[in-house]
């Protein structure tokens, strides 16, 4: 990334961590978000504009060459990931919280859709049992290409606390290909947002 826009002057210092920030939080700030997202927002502003420029330039160039306009698709696709609205277990509650008032994942273009035909991201938010395994595969196969999968939480990553149980799939990567793993039991909504941002980075690097 060559032409970086300079950071705005009024960026608050990064806090020591979410839990520390919340423990110190007096209740007077009750209407305000508990975790500062100015940082993430500036990061996006820094990345978004050059990426758009880059994509449009290459679009013009490739159109002149008669090639496909893949960078534009890539840029547009990674900035509007539509996850499947499907709650599996505990992580689904944090998944919902990430779309609530405090975290508001829709800022990042992430909008949950109820039909797999409209989705390009499968967030496996919970324990997968063998009974639901082939339904999960069916849903994944119904999603149009290009598609990605995030294993959210320890259960989807490797079975978590239920790894020894007789009915639990020890890790969803036994069933579908997974692009990003998010640790935590359950992960906080910040972790989910971080995972989505990392997936966007991954999509950009792959250039698909």
């Amino acid at each position: 990334m060559s032409g970086q826009t300079p950071l705005p002057a009024k960026v608050p210092p990064a806090s020591a961590g979410p839990s520390a920030a919340i423990a110190d939080m007096p209740l007077e700030v009750i209407g305000q978000p508990g975790v500062p997202f100015v940082e993430i927002e500036t990061l996006r502003a820094r990345e978004f504009i050059p990426a758009a420029k880059e994509a449009l330039t290459s679009l013009l160039k490739e159109q002149a060459n008669g090639k496909l306009i893949r960078p534009v698709f890539n840029w547009a696709g990674r900035n509007s990931l539509f996850p499947l609205h499907w709650g599996l277990a505990c992580c689904a509650i944090e998944f919902a919280a990430a779309f609530g008032a405090r975290w508001d994942a829709e800022r990042f273009g992430v909008v949950p859709r109820s039909s797999p035909r409209q989705c390009d991201l499968l967030i496996v938010n919970g324990t997968v049992t063998w009974k639901v395994a082939h339904k999960l595969i069916a849903l994944y196969e119904q999603m149009p290409e290009p598609k990605w999968a995030i294993a959210m939480g320890n259960c989807a990553t490797g079975g978590g606390p239920f790894r020894t149980a007789y009915s639990v799939v020890p890790g969803v990567d036994k069933l579908i290909p997974v692009d990003v793993y998010i640790a935590g039991c359950p992960p906080r909504p910040e972790n989910l947002l971080d995972g989505i941002l990392r997936l966007e980075q991954l999509i950009k690097e792959r250039g698909a």
């Binding site: 599996l88 009974k131 639901v132 339904k135 149980a165 007789y166 009915s167």
Partner: peptide, 14 residues
Amino acid sequence: MGYLHRGIEKISED
């Protein structure tokens, strides 16, 4: 039901 049966009663025995 049973799509989220995680065997909690069995794990508890251990």
